[in-house]
């Protein structure tokens, strides 16, 4: 009787684990099925590298290069803001802050993650866009920069959390060794602890990128959704995600516009996938380093 129970539990656990992988594969297959249908009507290179996105015109043009550039610019801007801030915050929390406020600070940053992205988008429209407009004398504050700033807030909790973990996992003995040799606290931190936590820091950056690339609501509200090839962060952009969100409702099932949005989905899936693989590699290396210490 016991053996039967063991057997059932084992199989149930196996099925649950297998189920998650199966779902991902099924989603990807569905994406592929609907997305690849586009390339029966549209040239693949015209899609990937075309600079004109006019999906409901006659004849329609499905060039997504401006959309890719839009996502790239917004993501890049967000990371440039969030990583130094996140690194500084993580170092402060793990190395400098007195024990008593450490927990309080960590909770505070995690609270940022609890803010729904649409609320951040709303704050962006009401406060940030007019502010940027005045500071930079722009026609409108709805720009890639507005998106980057708001997305940096979203990515910050992830980045701080992972970097802080990485720093705390660096064996205390490394820092002691440096201090015993006469390093000051800061010298020990930036010459020994940070390089030792490098893999973890890289993993945090990659996961931050992953978080930002997939963000939809906030960018839809504050980046202006103009499908231009951006040359600076102070211009409006249109991201891959916002395009799908804005146009999916209207695209009639079975039309080439419909397929093109799924094709964008494939592009997003691949980007996310690659980022996550790299993050995994870096996280792995950071764990291997811990194990190396005999």
């Amino acid at each position: 009787m016991k053996n039967l129970f063991e057997f059932i539990v084992e199989k149930a656990i196996f099925l649950s684990g297998a189920a998650s992988i199966i779902f991902v594969v099924l989603i990807f297959i569905f994406l592929l099925k609907e997305g690849l249908a586009l390339f029966g009507e549209v040239n693949f290179f015209a899609f990937l590298f075309g600079q004109n996105w006019y999906p409901i015109s006659d004849p329609p043009q499905f060039g997504i290069l401006p959309l890719i550039m839009g996502s790239v610019f917004v993501t890049f801007g967000a990371i440039v803001i969030a990583v130094p801030l996140g690194l500084a915050a993580a170092i402060y929390i793990s190395e400098v802050a007195p024990h008593s406020i450490r927990g309080f600070l960590k909770s505070g940053i995690e609270l940022l993650a609890a803010i729904p992205s649409i609320v951040l988008g709303f704050i962006g429209i009401i406060f940030l866009a007019p502010l940027l407009k005045n500071i930079f004398h722009l026609g409108s504050g709805l720009t890639a920069l507005a998106g980057s700033i708001m997305l940096a807030f979203m990515a910050l909790p992830t980045i701080v959390s992972i970097i802080e973990d990485a720093i705390v996992s660096v064996p205390r003995s490394y820092k002691e060794g440096a201090l015993a040799l006469g390093a000051t606290h800061w010298q020990a931190i930036y010459r020994v602890t940070i390089p030792a936590a490098a893999s973890g820091i890289l993993a945090a950056v990659m996961l931050g990128i992953g978080r930002v690339v997939g963000e939809t609501m906030a960018v839809l509200m504050i980046t202006g959704n103009a499908a231009i090839m951006p040359t600076s962060l102070l211009q409006p952009v249109r991201t891959l995600t916002a395009t799908v969100a804005a146009e999916m409702g209207e695209a009639v099932s079975g039309s080439s516009h419909y397929y093109s949005l799924f094709a964008i989905g494939i592009v997003l899936f691949i980007i996310s996938f690659i980022i996550n693989i790299f993050a995994d590699i870096f996280l792995h290396r950071s764990k291997a380093m811990k194990r190396r210490k005999k």
């Binding site: 429209i125 009401i126 007019p130 409108s140 509200m221 959704n225 103009a226 231009i228 249109r238 804005a246």
Partner: peptide
């Protein structure tokens, strides 16, 4: 066509908000 640099707002209310605050819009 609409020029590529035209800002595509997600709702009429968003257009209202932007016009209220922007003399060049």
């Amino acid at each position: 066509e609409f020029a590529p640099c035209v800002l595509m707002m997600p709702s009429s209310q968003a257009i209202v908000e932007e016009i209220n605050g922007n003399t060049a819009a």
